[in-house]
Amino acid sequence: MSITTRGRFIVFEGIDASGKSTQVNRLAEMVSAAGRKVHITAEPTTGPIGSLIRQAFSGRTPLDDRVIAALFVADRIDHLTNERDGILELLGRGIDVISDRYYLSSVAYHSSDIDMNWVVRANELSTDLLLPDLTIYLDVAPAVALRRLQSRAQQTDKFEVFERLSAAHNNYERAIELLGTRDNIQVISADGTLEEIAVEVQAVVNRSAGDVFQQAISTV
């Protein structure tokens, strides 16, 4: 009988251009420097379902918004359960997983087209399998996010317009009010510098997630 410490599952949420990807990488560097194994991931995934979602976002494969919402549910379940690099498999091996988006993104972005209660219920297929140990929501004003997006020399997707960003921001606030107590969601302002935000992230991780991962799971 060997003892394996369960990995930590930490999720970053926020509207586009909130700085999630940067902070995911910075936290991963900190975790790795502490001597822990860490895996970075994101949604939609790079798997077959995630690739179809990305094609829909770019306009190459036109899909109804309800279809896209359902595809996210399927992509998320595969993200959790696939045998190659599924989150549950990695956590069971003691690897920390840091994800750029999880189910709250679906609640925030799809509730403008579909009833929020439906989106929450559909994603219970995932949350019944795994809730994050900590979710960090990077809060940035939609107007600020839009300016950041417009400064990038790249094509934007269907959600990267002010109306969509504003709706998603409002839906994030509604979702956090609804689910924040159950799901250990911590809100950090994303208006500061990258360094200031990183310091806040580290403080939140140390304060909110420190004791959760001391538990050990037994494996044969």
Rank of each mutant, 00 (worst) to 15 (best):
F12M: 02
L179H: 05
Y109H: 08
R174E: 10
P132L: 10
K158G: 02
R54W: 07
N206D: 08
V107H: 11
S189D: 06
A198V: 03
A17L: 05
A28R: 14
I15Y: 04
L138D: 00
G7F: 03
E200T: 03
A168N: 07
L71I: 06
A216F: 15
V161D: 11
M1R: 07
E196N: 11
A167R: 02
F9E: 09
V205R: 04
S51C: 07
F162V: 14
E13N: 02
A108N: 03
T46W: 00
E124V: 08
Q150P: 00
I95H: 07
D78V: 14
K20F: 12
T81E: 15
A33Q: 05
A17P: 10
S111K: 05
I188A: 03
K20G: 06
S51A: 15
K37H: 07
N82W: 01
V201E: 08
T5Q: 11
L138V: 06
P132C: 04
L194S: 10
S32D: 04
I77V: 14
D75N: 07
I217T: 01
F12P: 05
D64G: 01
Q186K: 01
D191L: 09
D85F: 05
A122V: 11
S58Q: 13
D78L: 14
N170M: 04
G14N: 03
L80E: 03
V24H: 06
A122L: 11
V119K: 14
Y103W: 15
R76N: 02
K37N: 13
K20A: 13
V97W: 04
N25C: 06
V107C: 12
Q186N: 07
F9G: 01
A69M: 15
R164C: 11
Y137D: 06
L134P: 03
N123P: 03
G86C: 06
R66P: 00
K158D: 01
R101C: 05
D96T: 13
A17F: 13
N123Q: 05
R207C: 04
N206V: 09
L194W: 00
M30E: 10
D85T: 11
D65L: 15
A34T: 02
N123I: 09
G92W: 10
V31F: 14
I185L: 13
F72E: 01
G192I: 03
N206M: 15
I98Q: 11
A168I: 09
H110I: 07
K158W: 00
T219Y: 14
D157S: 07
A56C: 01
G7Y: 09
Q23P: 02
T22S: 09
A167E: 08
G47C: 09
G210P: 00
T81L: 10
P142G: 14
G86E: 01
E83T: 15
A56H: 12
Q202I: 15
I77P: 04
G94V: 03
R8C: 05
R76Y: 03
I176A: 09
K158H: 00
G19Q: 02
I136D: 02
L63G: 07
R164Y: 04
T193V: 00
V187L: 03
V120Q: 03
F72R: 09
D128H: 13
V220A: 13
T135G: 04
I95W: 01
R6C: 00
R8V: 04
